[in-house]
Amino acid sequence: MKKILVYLEPQNNSFKRVSNELITAANNLAQSSSAEIVGLCIGGNSSIYPSAGQFGLKKLVSVEFSGAYSSTAYAEIVSQVAKAESADVLLFASNATGMEIAPRISAKLDAGYVADCVGLEIVDGNIVATKPVYAGKALIKTKINKSTKVFSLRPNVFTAVKNDVGSPEVTNFSANISDNDKKASVTNVSTNAGKLDVSEADIIVSGGRGFKEAGNFAMVENLAAALGGAVGASRAVVDAGWRPHAEQVGQTGKTVSPNLYVAAAISGAVQHLAGMSSSKVILAINKDKDAPIFKVADYGIVGDVFEIMPKLTEKIKAVKG
């Protein structure tokens, strides 16, 4: 391992939190070798670059890009930078962008790629990546037998550690991009304005079929509001049309790893567990004490959600003052 290239994603006036997590993960890998670390930022405002130095990034390559996000163009830019920098390890977030461009880049560089890693360590000089498989029912440890190695890391699993090294040294790189590289370009982005997305929330309160009807989700919303979290939903609830698909957590929805995941009236089918079992702390509320959700829960309340949710919301409000 000589050089680690960290793909940073600007968002509004900062880098995404997962970008800082990637920097910390790169620093941990580099500790046991003399590998250099360089960040890569395409587009975005240079005023946010110093923030990456707070997590230990000393060097940053900045690439100007005019026009909308294009997976083909971005992949070409990252590959050009990786070659110019002779980077042999590339780190991405396992999110919408990373999951789309990292495989493309790995093909361009003829690299090996392991997606959605929840652990990275050095064993006998090799990077050993751990990733969940079979809906999280098992974990595999892998190693890449290619000189260039690409990994995407599940957000909010690797903790970003503050390590202020001042502002990173910035190099501008002009990528050689033709119109042919912009073959797939974004023409419009619509956001669920004002709503915290489950994939980016620290706290998620999810409700299941046990709420009986859409209107009763007010209880889930109230608890989420008290905790400052996002509302999530089980597949059954989304299929019934009570909640939008964007809120669905699970194998056919989103994979989340919040600090606190509250599963209310969710029995814990394996497909749901696939989307939330890497949460740091899990609180389950269910009337059935044998519900599978309790097997993965740190804390559980057995009883009627209709009685428990309002009480829990009030008590949490009291604690949070």
Partner: peptide, 26 residues
């Protein structure tokens, strides 16, 4: 390109504090 070194079932490190629904439990 990728070699699987090992596969294992996840180890449950959850606290597992499951209580009832009384006020004191909550």
């Amino acid at each position: 390109a990728v070699e699987v070194i090992s596969i294992a079932l996840p180890v449950n490190k959850r606290v597992g504090k499951i209580l009832g629904d009384s006020d004191s439990d909550i």
